[in-house]
Design a protein around this nucleic acid. Structure first.
Lengths: 335, 335
DNA sequence: CTGTTAGCGCATTCAA
DNA sequence: TTGAATGCGCTAACAG
């Protein structure tokens, strides 16, 4: 079918060991034979069979990226960051998306195996002990992005502080009725950042002496359509909030659409603040918390590649900064 | 390191052939031994080593998805479609992004090889003869999405007709000065759809007896920032267009931002029409040509999986419909 | 029905 | 400096 190393060896009139040597520079080869081999390789358009190489080397030269909520723009932005560095490397990316618990279980059971991938990059999924055991006993290098486990290196941001500051910013503008539109706290896939953001919200409210009213806490999935629904409910309430902190930009935009439909002017009648700073946020002039999504992808793979290539690499955790980007959806109330 | 089939065989007190048999149901096994084997597999938490399996089977159970312009929302939407079906299958996805000619060359030279992947799904890249030769002599099943080659099955839309209709719609509204904001015609990665859309624009203009003015044809990369720049130039011209057809939604939104900054009201002073119908288009109330991006991904993999699984599968081409979605960025001029 | 063996394509060790 | 032999883990053909 395809040319093998034997074909090249025959063509060049040498042994396969010699061909392998020039392919990998694994041992000295005389200039003359090297040239013969290279000529044969070129003539046959030979590229070593990946499967054979994997088996022999015990390496796969590929890493798995595991992504929940693949519909989320934020995840895509991270993946872009990953690809931007992987393109320059010799690794392949195996992409796994996870939308529900069975899918997560299947991935965590089958993917972290020797001979499958050389490393794991996991987005936004907290590990259960069973998953961790699998990873650890297989000694599969792993880096978490936007999630946490005491035993694993990760790239993270201080969600609590970032959210707290955003809420305090709203309070400082003079808002008292600040609602929280977020994700369900008990994420079926096990994420903690939603809880952290809610925590930050509560802290911010408390710091400013504001009451966290139960009817001001609403959850939905982080898609725009859901933000629209939740926003509708919230804005039709008799005690309507004057400001809303949304868990992510997509939710925030859904809220804005709801407000638009109810003819509630943003920002004069309603301030909205998002989270992520996706590209759409710029277009919509949305005030938001910028987390450097692309950068988390970049740092995540880089950390992972280092742990793979350097045995006993001391992979610690890396915290990235956030920044409140004030645009045009937040002003003082009744202005 | 990891448990192998031999460990399982020893644990169960059988031969490796028997273990392989129960793993693959490749030959009848007595109920008693089957249970012994299953118990051993369970006890050792055994999953067959992927590299060994690949080599032995001559299959990789993975397919490559090759994507240029990974920054484009449209490509992401297609990829989502792909992942939605792949999750239900037993195939892995190897993701390759391509941002320039050297990267394309490298991917096409190294990826379409037996032992590397079982199939190729290629987005928006026209093949050169050299690339095609590689694919054909390796007999790697391949499906193109949004690109064309007479020898390869593809998923496509009628770009020319769709653009023509969009332009005719603008003309019917009464616009005469209709500009085209598009991609460079000579795409360095070899795409034809940009040329097709420009062609459709010209046809539409001609059908309506309108003149294609050179200063009304502007190109940039399909990112919003570029749309902004191009839009700025176009809108500062003395002979300012009253309507703009943009090659893709992202460019259209950039144009709208430029208009916003120049205090040119959309749509009363300027109609804008995009292409793709990305999610952002809905938020921005952008009139646009909807092509079913997610669906192209779905159909693309499905077609590919069929060609892989069914020898001599007659994979033809599939044309998907487009639809003009009229929202709020297009009205009659001077209204 | 089941154990043993050959071979997938490669890197690498052992001999020469 | 190089060729030949061994083994990576598995499937499948072969032999019992």
């Amino acid at each position: 079918m395809s040319n093998t190393i034997h074909d090249v060896a025959r063509q060049a009139g040498v042994g396969i060991g010699t061909v392998s040597s020039v392919l990998n520079n694994s041992r000295p080869v005389s200039q003359a034979t090297r040239e013969k081999v290279l000529a044969a390789i070129d003539k046959l358009d030979f590229i070593p069979n990946s499967s054979g190489r994997r088996l022999s080397m015990g390496r796969t030269d590929s890493i798995a990226v595991i992504i929940p909520y693949f519909t989320s723009v934020a995840q895509i932005e991270r993946l872009r960051g990953v690809m931007s560095v992987i393109v320059e490397s010799d690794y392949d990316i195996n992409l796994f998306t996870v939308e529900n618990a069975p899918q997560r279980d299947k991935v965590f059971q089958t993917v972290p195996r020797r001979g499958r991938v050389d490393g794991l990059l996991i987005f936004s999924l907290n590990m259960r002990d069973k998953d961790l055991k699998q990873i650890q006993q297989g000694k599969i290098p792993t880096v978490l992005v936007e999630s946490f486990h005491p035993e694993l290196p990760n790239i993270y941001i201080d969600d609590i502080a970032a959210t707290r500051k955003a809420v305090e910013y709203l309070a400082d503008l003079g808002h008292q009725n600040i609602a929280y539109v977020g994700d369900v706290l008990e994420d079926p896939l096990g994420s903690s950042f939603n809880q952290n953001r809610y925590l930050g919200y509560c802290q911010g409210m408390e710091n400013k002496g504001l009451h966290v009213h139960p009817s001001f806490y609403r959850v939905g999935w982080h898609r725009r359509a859901k933000g629209y629904q939740v926003g509708m409910k919230l804005l039709k309430q008799t005690n309507r909030p004057t400001a809303i902190f949304a868990f992510c930009d997509e939710l925030a935009l859904g809220v804005i659409e709801a407000a638009r439909e109810l003819e509630i002017n943003v920002p004069s009648d309603l301030s909205v603040i998002g989270y992520d700073d996706i590209e759409l946020a710029h277009f919509a002039q949305l005030t938001t918390v910028r987390q450097h999504l692309f950068e988390t992808g970049v740092q995540g793979v880089e950390l992972l590649l280092n742990t793979i290539d350097t045995p006993n690499y001391n992979a610690g955790s890396i915290q990235l900064e956030t920044k409140l980007i004030v645009r045009q959806t937040t002003v003082s109330p009744n202005q």
